[in-house]
Structure formats: C-alpha cells, structure tokens
Computed example of a mutant assay.
Amino acid sequence: MIVDVDTGIDDSLALLYLLASPEAQILGIAATAGNVPAAQVAANNLAWLDVCRAPEIEVALGAAEPLAIPLRTTEDTHGPQGLGYAELPVARRACSNRTAAQMWVALAREHPGEIVGLCTGPLTNLALALRIEPELPRLLRRLVIMGGAFNHPGNTTPTNEWNVHVDPESAKEVFDAFSAAPPDRRPVVCALDITETIEMYPKHLALLAERALSHPAETVSEDDVPGTRSAASNPVVRHVSDAVRFYFEFHRAYDQGYLAHMHDPFAAAVALDPTLARTRPATVDVELTGALTRATTVADWVGMWGREPNADIVVGTDPELFFDRLIARVGDFAKDLYPPSGEPRMTHAQPASHRPTKDPR
C-alpha cells in the first residue's frame, strides 16, 4: 500500500488500523497538507510510527500548498498539531529524501499492478504524481479515496466536503485521469454519504481499552471537563483517547452530538477488504467555477454525460462490523505493543525497502 494522509485525528486511526492489520504492507506514507500543514503531518506520521514501534516505512513530505489556491487548514477540528489533545513524543525517525509525488511514482513503477493507494486527505500529491507518470491509473491495482459528497450535504460548504474543498483542482485532475483506468481498477470513493454513518462514541473507546487490557477502565463522557486527559496505562489507548476526545468535543460544538465521524479509518478498512462496502459505478467530476458550488463533487449515475464511469462510489456498509474490526485489531495491536507485563512485542507492519534520510522539521 501507499497511504496518502493529512494526519489528522481520524487519519491517525486509519494508520493504526493499517499497522494493526497483518495483511497490510505499507511501502510508503505521503504527508499531504490539509488538516494541518504538510510538515506537521509528516511529523505526526513519524511520531505514530515510533509509538507503534513500526519497522522502517518511508514517510515522504508532500506539497506545501494546493495546486491553485492558498492552503486552508482546520486546527479547530483536529487541534493545533492535528492530534487533538494527544501529545506524542517527538519522533526519532526522519523523512524521506524524495517528495511524496516522486514516491508515488517510484513505488508504482517498482510494483506494477500490485499497489493499493489510499488517500484520506486532499489529492494534491497524487495529482502531482500523475503529472509525472500519467500511467498511474494502470500501474496501481486500486485506489481508495475518502472525499466528496454526492446525495448528501457538505461539511465545509452546503455542497462540498473538506478534502475536495482544500484542493478541488487536484481532485478534478485525479478523477479525469482515472477515466482511463480499467473497470476493475476504478477508484473506490468513500464520500460523506457513507462516512458520516461511521459514528464513534465513548463506548467504543472503552471497548478498545478493555481489549488492550489497559487500566484503569477508560471512561470518556460528555459530562467531563473539556480537555480532560486519559490516564490509560497503554500509550496507544491513551493517545487515541486524547485525540478522539477533542473530536467528540468538536462535533458536540456543532450540534452533531458527543460522537466522532471516523471517515478515514473506514476508507482504510475498505482498502484492505472491499467487501465491507457496497458500491455503485458513476462518472464523477468536480465543479471548479460555480460561485456557490465550487469544489462540489458531481456524480452522473445514469450516463447523461455520455462518459464511462470513472469511480465506484460506496453506497452502503455495516458500521457495527467496521467498529468490531477496528476495536479488535487496534486493541490487540496495542496490547501486543505494550502488554500489561513482560517485554513488548514487534508490530505486524511490514518493512519497506526505502529508508528515509531527511528530517521534515
């Protein structure tokens, strides 16, 4: 896999899900500017890899700005560093000496037809990679995108979703390019229509801590003083709880309830197991000029444009099954990394062949 993230609270859970999954071999992690600036994203990725005692995985710094507009970040949603209240140790690892776009291209060329790409942030890095290597839609085995909103309100404007809003030009370039992909390699798009049904609640954090054998029992409540910190003995559980609490508080502040939408972990789960998602083919384009609708993703479900489908949009799933998997995988992973007694064991993650050489800070 190549994972392109703008880490991010829910991106963090996506990374943990993948690191906890034995079938996931992460060859590279691209840091894209979005929730926070790209350098902070890279630092967050490196810090999570340290916390998870992962083997060497290439982390490549992406573009600092979108293709055509100034960068907009969202620290109000994800916290000053993008990790909510979590305070991860400064990483000992370093960032790659090649850009995220260069990494996308090099890895896809080295492993033609084998790599699943996962994008949970703006598509800037992938668009730049496509400019270098237009054959990427045929070189990748599949692409999974978290982004867009179709038959659903936006979460940034009335019609558009955050990732596309940050860099709509890159989203259009990607969807246009993947019009050349064979039908079995069309991007799978996890849009707000489905990801806003993936609702995490305090009970899920309690179950995760219990599965990890962390102590004391993890109790997160909307009655807690804002900014309350976890006392969990397990570092993974503690950092996740502190990050997600911030997300709970954000959603409550916008009258959505004391919950958190787990957009990105769901996309990661679909990348590993497409059977989690029911999809429907469509032709997707991105509006770039509308005064009220710029950055809106538009789906032609029935062929009115006379163009072949270029995406498989997720239209259904089983949120309970997803959370069962998330809790089991990340909980067991956290327990194996930091067992209540005895020496910590190695993570399931597979090493990549390219060793990073340059620090992003």
Rank of each mutant, 00 (worst) to 15 (best):
C190H: 02
E173Y: 03
A33H: 09
P339T: 01
A206D: 09
A277F: 01
R345C: 00
R294S: 12
D332K: 05
R98Q: 10
N151Q: 14
E161F: 03
E210R: 14
A191M: 02
D318E: 12
A20I: 07
N125E: 15
A108E: 07
E65W: 15
L128R: 15
M304P: 00
A100R: 03
V237N: 02
A63M: 03
A282I: 05
P187A: 08
E56W: 13
V188Q: 02
V220F: 13
A14G: 01
N310Q: 07
R53G: 03
V116A: 05
E75R: 15
R294A: 12
T157F: 12
E114C: 13
P356Y: 13
E222L: 04
L71G: 09
Y85L: 14
R280T: 09
D255P: 01
L27C: 05
F333I: 04
D332A: 08
L140V: 12
V240M: 12
A63R: 05
P281D: 13
Y247C: 07
F246T: 09
M200R: 04
G342K: 01
S214H: 04
T296D: 00
N163Q: 13
C52K: 08
V286P: 00
L139D: 12
R131W: 08
S21L: 09
H263F: 10
D11R: 05
S241K: 06
V225H: 08
G82T: 10
E249K: 02
L46I: 12
N125M: 12
V298C: 11
A177M: 09
A295C: 08
M103W: 03
P183V: 10
